[in-house]
Nucleic acid binder design. Structure first.
Length: 428
RNA sequence: GGAGGGGUGACGGAGUGGCCGAACGUGCCGGUCUUGAAAACCGGAGAUGGGGUAACCUAUCCGCGAGUUCAAAUCUCGCCCCCUCCGCCA
């Protein structure tokens, strides 16, 4: 969502900067509507001003025990005409919002141009692929072989794209969640949050999931509530309609939540295994920062997500998404991709974005400078978030990268305290 | 789910139709006083949108949305949320 005055005055500039990202935007209509809105607003204001003065005049006449019949009749007529014009204005604003809420964020200057994932820019790699004996097994073969992963039975109580973890599989997932939360809270300075998993429409609109992506969300029947697709939604909305004092910034939260996604339009993709499910666990990092610090914060937040992979000794790379591959609300995104030996590819395990003021404008999240003097006008914060990490995919990476020739899986050192001290997952 | 009470500015809390953007208090900012601070006293200060180069002007905002009226924080209706008690329940 954009500031409407900026929108009107910098429409061409905005269109240029969006480039192909703005190809679906009705620019001409937008321009007309923005002009209409301003003109009609000026008129309505003027008429309202007259109405107010007229009403004051009626009050004065009545106080002086004079007849006010003429004025009252005139004001009645004026009031009706205002009502009509306001209705027109409301319509224009509605149409304007309909378009404006569907305009994606403007990419930061440092974002590589491009349309395809191939146009993404690799910025660094860490570690090396493990030396594994052939045959290299997939995580679903390993998991089912060890009896810790069950896809078939998940269909009984749910449907395809759900999974059941049992035994040491469930334990490993829980260990990962605890490990990640512990690192972020004790080493990286994040405050832990356990938010609602159902949120309302306003919250979803604030972070940008709505109105454009409603078909990607699970919705509760009979009530206007949605299952969260990411903890980003409830945690960013913690400060909706708030003005944060300067000394509180930056604010950093971490949250473990299950996430729910319809995965509409992904038929045939990643149909096997834990990679793409309707429900998965994620530890999220969320930050609120001043504009001048938000890109430093993005680097920091990304490094915090990387720290988890480094602790687990998993090979990964970081890529800067190109303009065409970025999400709707993001101004810049780094994806962290972990090495999956079974497919010999890097797969996304974290996505870290700076939304600049895009979400803050929609959710009305501001901060106010400390100085008590003049110039204490509030400003929009910049919001950021990133996975730290997607837990299910981390479990996948561990199964595949730590697999042994006999089909067992070694437990990474840092997780052993969370796994009751065991060093290896065996069939049980 | 049932019964009752309530949603006003950063906070507390007045205000039941017109000079109310809203008393008063606390907190905040500036000043006087003081070696400095506190206290006391004086003064200032809401948010958002629109117009204007600017000083400034203007509209809207008393949970949200409709309605009545020349005029609504105040009256009517609907909705949302919070609190207390009862029921149910992890």
């Amino acid at each position: 969502m954009y500031d409407l005055r900026l929108l009107r005055e910098n429409l061409d500039d905005l269109r240029d900067r969006l480039g192909p990202r703005g190809k679906d935007v009705a620019w001409q209509e937008l321009r007309t509507l923005a002009e209409d809105r301003r003109n009609q607003m000026v008129q309505v204001e003027e008429l309202r001003h007259q109405l107010k003065k007229g009403s004051d005049e009626v009050a004065r006449l009545k106080r002086e025990k004079q007849s006010a019949d003429y004025e009252m009749a005139a004001m009645k007529a004026l009031g009706e005409s205002i009502k009509e014009r306001e209705e027109q204005l409301r319509l224009v604003e509605e149409q304007l919002a309909h378009i404006a809420l569907r305009i994606p964020n403007v990419p930061h200057a440092s974002v590589p141009a491009g349309q395809q994932p191939e146009d993404n820019l690799e910025v660094r790699r860490w570690g090396t692929p493990p030396h594994l004996a052939e045959p290299i097994r997939t995580h679903w073969d390993l998991g089912e072989g060890l009896g810790i992963l069950d896809f078939d039975r998940a269909v009984r109580m749910a449907k395809a794209r759900f999974a059941v973890l049992t035994g040491m599989g469930a334990r490993l997932e829980r260990a990962l969640i605890n490990y990640m939360l512990d690192v972020h809270t004790t080493q990286h300075g994040y405050r832990e949050v356990l938010p609602p998993l159902l949120v309302n429409r306003v919250a979803m609109t604030g972070t940008g999931q709505l109105p454009k992506f409603e078909e990607d969300l699970f919705q509760v029947r009979d009530e206007e509530l949605f299952l969260i697709p990411t903890a980003e939604v409830p945690v960013t909305n913690l400060h909706r309609e708030e003005i944060l004092p300067e000394e509180r910034l930056p604010v950093r939260y971490t949250a473990y939540t299950p996430c729910f996604r319809r995965e509409a339009g992904s038929y045939g993709k990643d149909t096997r295994g834990l990679i793409r499910l309707h429900q998965f666990n994620k530890v999220e990092l969320v930050a609120f920062a001043k504009a001048e610090h938000s890109y430093d914060e993005l680097e920091r937040l990304t490094s915090h997500a990387e720290a988890i992979l480094q602790g687990l000794d998993l090979h990964y790379r970081v890529v800067a998404l190109c303009t065409g591959d970025m999400g709707f609300s993001a101004a810049k995104t780094y994806d962290i991709e972990v090495w999956l030996p079974s497919q010999q590819v890097f797969r996304e395990i974290s996505s870290c974005s700076n939304f600049e003021a895009f979400q803050a404008r929609r959710a009305n999240i501001r901060w106010r400078p400390k100085s008590g003097k003049k110039d204490t006008k509030s400003e929009f914060v910049h919001t950021l978030n990133g996975s730290g990490l997607a837990v299910g995919r981390t479990l996948v990476a561990i199964l595949e990268n730590y697999q042994q020739p006999d089909g067992t899986v070694a437990v990474p050192k840092v997780l052993q305290p969370y796994m009751g001290g065991i060093e290896k997952i065996e069939r049980s």
